[in-house]
Computed example of a mutant assay.
Amino acid sequence: MPSAPLAHTTPVTPDLVRGALDLEETPDGLLPHRLPARARAQNTDGQLAMAESQPSGVRLAFRTRATVVELATVPTKRVYVGAPPRPEGLYDLLVDGRPAGQASATGGNTVTIDMSTGDAEMKPGPAGAVRFDGLPGADKTVEIWLPYNEITALVELRTDAPVEPAPPSGRRTWLHHGSSISHGSDAASPTTVWPALAAAAGEVELVNLGFGGSALLDPFVARTIRDTPADLISLKIGINLVNADVMRMRAFGPAVHGFLDTVRDGHPDIPLLVVSPILCPMHEDTPGPTAFDFSRLAEGKLSFTAAGDPAERAEGKLTLNAVRQELQRIVSARAKDDPNLHHLDGRALYGEADHAELPLPDRLHPDPAAHRLIGKRFAAHAFAAGGPFAAPGN
């Protein structure tokens, strides 16, 4: 039996949305972006265009007495030819900061991608909705975290009581930039992506600029971070530079310096933490590029392989060990004049012992348990007393 119509309809407006840097009016609805229009205009890469429009860390936040909340959306889902079905995007519901439900949206558009050719075909679909019932009737703060793996146009909220935007939390804002692992790849849900877990533990507001396949030291991303209000910033650098094989060591060091210089132009004094890659055995000493493992794809398993040759390190091709060593050198040198600049070896978040217990299922991305581990360890390092992101007085 269809659900009864709800008495209150509220358009999704910018004051209801957190974690997005831009909101685009589209025929489908309000589309959250994690890069502003100026940065998007300078980007020509389809992978980054897709990644920044997937709303990892973006959520609606409002106050209400409603016991039923329905969010109408137009999702865009991906299908890969010959690969196992991708998990449906999940929406996480929080009530006064506590998990209170999960749902997936019906309807929406479908993009079919042929990984062997790179071709993509879009099939439009109807608007869908996610519905949460049985909420407590008292006044409360409700958050709906959007799927990290689906482009999501926001249409309207439907409730059985009025809603109003949640007031500012008063918490510090943490801006994090990184790769697909920071974006959320293979996490269980949007609030269990490791930066979201770390933000909850650290009691900070998250702006997640983790872009799948696209943490490539792009100057327009550095300018975006420069111009975005934040109290804390972390930059997870390295794995995508190896994946994409986009530069050699000669270019890497100056590019890191330039990225940090630009960020510091807008945030000269706040804590800035540079994080090197977590362990990824296939690329520790073997350069990229990273390629799909089509032998495993034929078995219905999505997996990756390192297509480079270790001998190419002599030509300056990047490996994870080389990246870590150079990042540590750069941060150590700069920290002499920048006491709020810090470094963290990513293997402290996920290292050899962790890989033995929680191996990377596709040889590249951590599973949900590893996301929880990384989030817990990052919070323990960064937000604890004496850590680079410790609250004032701690």
Results as ranks from 00 to 15, higher is better:
residue 284 E to D: 09
residue 111 V to F: 05
residue 276 S to K: 06
residue 53 S to W: 03
residue 388 P to C: 09
residue 370 A to L: 10
residue 182 S to N: 12
residue 190 P to E: 07
residue 275 V to G: 04
residue 28 D to C: 02
residue 9 T to C: 00
residue 58 V to W: 07
residue 68 V to D: 11
residue 94 L to H: 05
residue 107 G to Q: 10
residue 318 L to D: 10
residue 349 L to W: 00
residue 301 K to Q: 14
residue 154 L to T: 09
residue 357 E to G: 04
residue 336 K to T: 14
residue 101 G to H: 06
residue 6 L to I: 08
residue 152 T to I: 05
residue 106 T to Y: 02
residue 367 D to A: 15
residue 68 V to E: 13
residue 388 P to A: 11
residue 280 C to V: 15
residue 286 T to W: 09
residue 63 R to L: 15
residue 303 S to K: 07
residue 341 L to K: 04
residue 36 P to R: 14
residue 156 E to I: 04
residue 256 V to I: 14
residue 39 A to I: 05
residue 88 E to Q: 15
residue 263 V to K: 06
residue 43 N to K: 01
residue 109 N to Q: 10
residue 281 P to C: 05
residue 300 G to F: 03
residue 123 K to H: 14
residue 111 V to K: 02
residue 89 G to I: 07
residue 133 D to A: 13
residue 69 V to C: 12
residue 46 G to A: 08
residue 29 G to R: 01
residue 16 L to A: 00
residue 227 D to H: 04
residue 140 K to H: 04
residue 110 T to K: 08
residue 130 V to F: 12
residue 243 N to I: 01
residue 121 E to H: 13
residue 143 E to I: 08
residue 28 D to W: 06
residue 354 D to C: 12
residue 321 N to G: 14
residue 100 A to Y: 10
residue 290 T to C: 13
residue 392 P to L: 08
residue 87 P to E: 12
residue 280 C to T: 14
residue 201 A to R: 15
residue 257 H to N: 12
residue 389 F to R: 07
residue 123 K to N: 12
residue 310 P to K: 01
residue 384 A to Y: 08
residue 293 D to M: 11
residue 174 W to C: 01
residue 37 A to I: 05
residue 383 F to D: 10
residue 323 V to R: 07
residue 115 M to F: 08
residue 223 R to W: 08
residue 372 R to P: 00
residue 308 G to S: 11
residue 363 R to V: 06
residue 55 P to E: 02
residue 349 L to K: 00
residue 38 R to T: 15
residue 66 A to N: 03
residue 137 G to M: 07
residue 95 V to L: 15
residue 220 F to W: 14
residue 151 I to Y: 02
residue 247 M to H: 01
residue 342 H to G: 01
residue 326 E to H: 13
residue 249 M to E: 13
residue 236 K to I: 00
residue 15 D to H: 03
residue 351 G to P: 03
residue 279 L to M: 13
residue 320 L to K: 11
residue 58 V to L: 11
residue 250 R to E: 15
residue 236 K to M: 08
residue 151 I to G: 04
residue 67 T to K: 13
residue 296 R to D: 12
residue 225 I to C: 02
residue 309 D to C: 10
residue 297 L to G: 09
residue 117 T to I: 10
residue 6 L to G: 07
residue 79 V to D: 14
residue 329 R to M: 12
residue 82 G to V: 11
residue 159 T to R: 05
residue 367 D to T: 05
residue 312 E to W: 12
residue 346 G to D: 05
residue 326 E to N: 10
residue 335 A to G: 03
residue 60 L to C: 03
residue 310 P to N: 02
residue 342 H to K: 02
residue 82 G to R: 12
residue 9 T to H: 02
residue 94 L to D: 08
residue 67 T to M: 09
residue 179 S to Q: 00
residue 41 A to W: 03
residue 351 G to F: 05
residue 303 S to N: 11
residue 248 R to F: 11
residue 110 T to E: 14
residue 392 P to G: 10
